[in-house]
Design a protein around this nucleic acid. Structure first.
Length: 487
DNA sequence: ACCTCCCGCCATTGG
DNA sequence: CCAATGGCGGGAGGT
């Protein structure tokens, strides 16, 4: 059974072949919704109960409606390891298909998104990544968790310790006006706790305390109960993902509800490509300056040498240049500009914090297809860029390349600053079509050599690189992400 | 009686 | 302005 099949069942026909609503009454519920749209949900619910009773049917029982169960149904609709990132999810269809209120889908999707099992693409539209990125996501969360010293937080919270004790790195998260104590964020933090814990066990109690403690919103400091409720929700989804399981921890005062990590523990081996040397840590001060206008230059090197490049001062280096500041930093594997679409995700703190151009060989790609709205991957067909068949960012759904910004003259905006991101690839293999596009003055000033760019023909859904005529020699080619497009 | 946590109201957001 | 999101906590089911 292919994705297509699933998708067809999913998107196409009316919801009657729905495996999750075996009983007629649910179906009726659904049609009732359509007919009586103006009715309040509560009444609809009562109505469905009534109908069920009338038909002498099994009442659902609260348990059978748990988020966890619902999540399992959701997961069952898609492959764990899809071969491409082209499976799209429509919340409408899912909620109809699973026969639940839309609100519930948001709960699930939010925690799935926090683990990059799905990615938000647009309104009512997500992409399914499955577990393909799970390893790297977990690794990243673990890294952040350590960096944030979450293990210390845990010890502290465990003994009902004081508050505000530990320095959570310069949290420059100023003006975080956002109501982002969201499920997404909570979920990521919750997971971090497991990944950082020696025993890989986390009590809801401790988790809740930490979450409250971190919440910079003083108003939420007294909402322990609410936090716990949310944690249960998250835990249910994580459980259905097979990442954690419920347990109890012994304590002098009896047992406390807790969860234990039973998911993958070795994130490193898998997906070697993604595990390549990454992030260059630019010295603090430079970050800002570089962020004003980052330009990433990639100089040809044999693929082989790339693997060890991180330590050896091998051939021509890839480098990052802050155009306006005139500063240059050398990097190893490449870069990835990370910024989030969604505010304050622990996964990618705002800022130019890491750059990853994955230049590993052997990646399979055709043209590239981008989910409308984001650019999680920048894939360059190996046929046109043989030494560098794949350029990808971290698979970070938060990466802030979205088509609309790409199409604006401003290129793309980062922290309110318009930027252009250039990846210059030189050598005989790098080929991309030169733009027939007039460039902004600024652009012109910045560049040298012919420009190539990602076209986004027609729809916002695709970007392609087109091979350019014969290229030879050491001519430099540049690949600009964020060029204004023609039209 | 305490642990879970579903349900849906309604404030926010985003388009 | 309206639809899509999703914070939030009352109160009911489960044990």
């Amino acid at each position: 059974m292919t994705h297509n099949t699933l998708l067809n069942v999913f998107g196409g026909a009316p919801p009657h072949a729905d495996p999750w609503t075996p009983t007629a009454n649910l179906r009726m519920l659904i049609s009732a919704k359509v007919l009586f749209r103006p009715l309040r949900m509560r009444e609809q619910w009562r109505m469905s109960r009534w109908m069920a009773r009338e038909e002498g049917e099994r009442k659902p029982s609260r348990k059978q409606k748990s988020l966890g169960l619902l999540c399992q149904k959701f997961l069952a609709l898609y492959p764990d390891y899809p071969t491409s990132d082209t499976i799209s999810i429509s919340l409408d269809e899912v909620s109809t298909s699973l026969g639940v209120e839309r609100r519930r889908i948001y709960d699930i999707v939010n925690v799935l998104e926090s683990l990059m099992i799905v990615g938000r693409v647009a309104k009512n539209q997500y992409v399914w990544y499955g577990r393909r990125r799970l390893g790297s996501t977990l690794a990243e969360l673990q890294g952040i968790g350590r960096q944030q010293r979450y293990h210390l937080h845990m010890e502290q919270a465990a003994e009902g310790g004081h508050r505000e004790g530990i320095q959570t790195h310069a949290d420059t998260a100023a003006a975080s006006t956002r109501k982002d104590k969201s499920l997404r964020i909570m979920s990521q933090k919750f997971v971090m706790l497991f990944l950082v814990s020696r025993t890989q066990t986390v009590t809801l109690d401790v988790a809740a305390k930490i979450l409250i403690e971190e919440s910079q919103d003083p108003a939420s400091h007294s909402k322990y109960k609410t936090k716990v409720r949310r944690l249960y929700d998250i835990a249910n989804v994580l459980t259905s993902l097979g990442l954690i399981k419920k347990v109890h921890v012994r304590e002098e005062r009896g047992r406390k509800p807790a969860f234990k990590w039973i998911g993958p523990a070795d994130f490193h081996s898998r997906h070697a490509a993604i595990a390549l040397p990454e992030a260059i840590a630019l010295p603090g001060d430079r970050k800002q300056k570089l962020a004003r206008h980052a330009s990433f230059n990639v100089v040809p090197t044999s693929v082989a040498s790339q693997r060890r490049v991180n330590s050896a001062p091998s051939s021509p280096r890839r480098e990052v240049t802050g155009k306006e500041s005139g500063q240059t930093a050398h990097i190893t594997t490449g870069c990835h500009f990370s910024q989030m679409t969604r505010p304050h995700s622990p996964l990618s703190p705002p800022g130019l914090n890491s750059l990853n151009f994955l230049l590993s060989a052997g990646q399979t790609t055709g043209g590239l297809t981008l989910p409308a709205g984001t650019l999680p991957y920048v894939l360059v067909p190996s046929s046109t860029l043989s030494p560098y068949p794949l350029m990808a960012n971290r698979g970070d759904a938060n990466l802030n390349f979205n088509m609309s910004t790409m199409m604006s003259p401003a290129c793309f905006v980062f922290n309110g600053v318009a930027l252009s991101l250039n990846c210059v690839v030189s050598g005989p293999h790098s080929l991309v079509s030169p733009p027939q596009t007039p460039q902004t003055p600024k652009e012109a000033a910045a560049g040298g050599g012919s420009k190539a760019f990602f076209q986004t023909p027609g729809t916002l859904g695709t970007a392609t690189t087109t091979p350019v005529a014969r290229r030879r020699g050491s001519a430099q080619r540049r690949l600009d992400i964020g060029q204004p497009l023609t039209n």
